[in-house]
Amino acid sequence: MRSIVIGMLLSLILAMVLSLSAKAIDYGVSPNEWSATVLGNEAEFIDPMSFNDLLLGIHTDLFGLIITFILIASVTARRGRSRVVMIGFLTLSLLSLLTYPIGMLFSSMIGSSGVILSLGGFIVFHLLMIMGGLDSLIGLLRKKF
């Protein structure tokens, strides 16, 4: 059982790193590049993303990210960390994960601020999942739980 969870955590951490890399290639790494991809840029002749494509992208991303969150949170909760750390981890993860789709969906109304919020949420969520995964992985390797 221990080796299955170790394998799963390693795969999920790798998936998070790959997800960040894929987004960096597709959308760019700076807020300006994200805004140009989602909202378009007349000066550079970049068309905005269609609403259907945006919906499809968010829906697909969110499905994978919710599953990742459930799996990592389920293991991390058994790690035996203090209540404050667990509350902080769960709350921050959920808030950042909520910010990503909401920022994207409202970007057509609030402009680039929505895209920047979304970018922030996306990066924070991935970093938290990588940290939570690594913390549980180290605990498992040391046979702490």
Binding site: I66, T91, L94
Partner: peptide
Amino acid sequence: AFSTLVILQ
């Protein structure tokens, strides 16, 4: 927050 997330999805 979690319920909002899954309902949103």
